[in-house]
Design a protein around this nucleic acid. Structure first.
Lengths: 267, 267
DNA sequence: CGGGTCGTTGACACATTTCAAGTTTAGTGG
DNA sequence: CCACTAAACTTGAAATGTGTCAACGACCCG
């Protein structure tokens, strides 16, 4: 019953919470560590490339992206964050970010001081675990993007990205999908390693094939199955369903068994 | 003083250890959890794409890679592991890997059962922390690769990769670098999102520019600075120097200060 | 009404792929 | 140690996907 009463349901929708790793007590501790939400205009930097930052940023509302630039100004988006996502997990361990974080829409962002998170992770197993889990999910997404960038055609890449964004931003309703896509064609290009001109053409192709229907920012995918097939998109890598390996259930006795057995070869 | 005496210096060279997060006690605990090393021939799968695995794999000797394939057999290498690296951190949290792990040379691999690692992370703050750190480093490398794949020319990409591998595989001696590069041109191509034919041509170009000298598997880079410049390579993202935020030194009092101050805006 | 961002188009240039040989190197068994 | 084979590396010519440049139109917001 101290003086500071934290605004309660700040982090409620965060993937950090919904993934099911945390006890109520752990959620409370994180809520208490969170700073008041901060609003951002669309297209502004939350953190600049190479900044020294002492805070983790979580997206309450709006979209954002991580991006890197090369010498002659080429931009590569290396991550898209939708509401509920962490924007810069790396800040937990690294002083200097090797990417910038920029909003793609107007957004509301909650920061938590890195040191507080590290302390909490030390005290609470669930928090330590969910952080590792989040990092590994980011990893899985980046690996998939590497496959796309390296081995898929422009046509496929665009299909793949649209599938991913549709899947992450909406609850799937049947085989169709409707959602607000805030990325401009140039931003899509920066994500896909293409030119905005070429993204435009590929988008027209997808429209011509009746794979997407657009009206302003609204994107409709009439037949997700077909678009998934084109883009070789399989949502497994997003790990939307799983998560929440809570404690370590039968691990104690199991671990001993495995330790003594020479049958580990069958890993 | 139980019956099982663990082979002691198994993990000694692992980045897990050398990053300086762990106490002696924590190292011991990990050593005890490690299974006996297993030898692999060059070019064999440690874990196949999509396998269910219950073990984390660490490379004691030799090189390996993580790879993914698309529908028509195109392969993309999404990670290269040198001795000391973890090969499949994701196994810590995910039942099914969305990539395969294949040796690039003859190799020796130590496995640790995932459940044991999770238990240990629960009990030891340092272990939890080093795992998160390793995941975030993997992340930083993948982001950099995304930038390369999306926004660098073939010439630059090859230069960049050679710089990275040189940096990771050897101690830097002055401005030159000599190391065994076990990747075939086809494997380089699978890493760079190119064709082996084109990698061949780019390699000849680099040779012609005196940026590299090859003799068999031996790769010599006479002037690292120049090659770094070509490939826009900056080793920061590898996080070879840093690591080892040990406990949370002045964090207690610092954290409080920051919590009360409205100056967090300057993050 | 005016200015700026975003989307669209066309013609052309070029980096990279594809295909289809050839040559060298490394590994294996006799 | 040689012969044999498969894998790795090279080479050239032609095809093509994507980039570049430059312009124009649509739309939004003040």
């Amino acid at each position: 019953m101290a003086d500071k009463s934290p605004p309660r349901p700040l982090l409620a929708g965060m993937r950090l919470f919904t993934s099911g790793f945390l006890s109520d007590q752990e959620r409370d501790a994180l809520e208490r560590a969170a700073l008041p939400p901060r609003p951002f205009r669309s297209g502004t930097d939350v953190v600049r490339e190479g900044d020294v930052t002492g805070h983790l940023h979580f997206l309450i509302k709006g979209w954002a992206c991580r991006y890197k630039t090369n010498r002659d100004g080429g931009r590569q988006i290396v991550g898209v964050s939708v509401p509920g996502d962490a924007a810069n997990l790396d800040a937990l361990m690294f002083d200097r970010l090797n990417y910038g974080v920029r909003t793609l829409t107007a957004a509301s962002v909650v920061a938590i001081p890195r040191e507080r998170v590290l302390e909490l992770a030390e005290q609470h197993g669930g928090i330590a675990r969910v952080l590792t889990w989040l990092a590994l999910v980011d990893n899985a997404v980046l690996s998939e993007w590497a496959l796309c960038l390296g081995r898929l055609s422009a046509h496929q890449r665009l299909a793949h990205l649209l599938c991913e964004l549709a899947t992450r931003s909406t609850v799937n309703e049947g085989n169709a999908s409707v959602f607000e896509l805030p990325l401009t064609q140039e931003q899509l290009a920066d994500t896909l390693g293409l030119t905005s001109v070429h993204v435009n053409r590929m988008m027209q192709q997808l429209r011509g094939e009746q794979l997407i229907v657009t009206s302003g920012r609204l994107m409709t995918i009439p037949d997700m199955a077909r678009l998934r097939d084109i883009g070789e998109f399989n949502p497994g890598y997003l790990h939307l369903e799983d998560g929440g390996v809570r404690r370590t259930p039968s691990a104690e006795v199991d671990g001993m068994r495995r330790q003594l057995s020479p049958r580990y070869m069958a890993c």
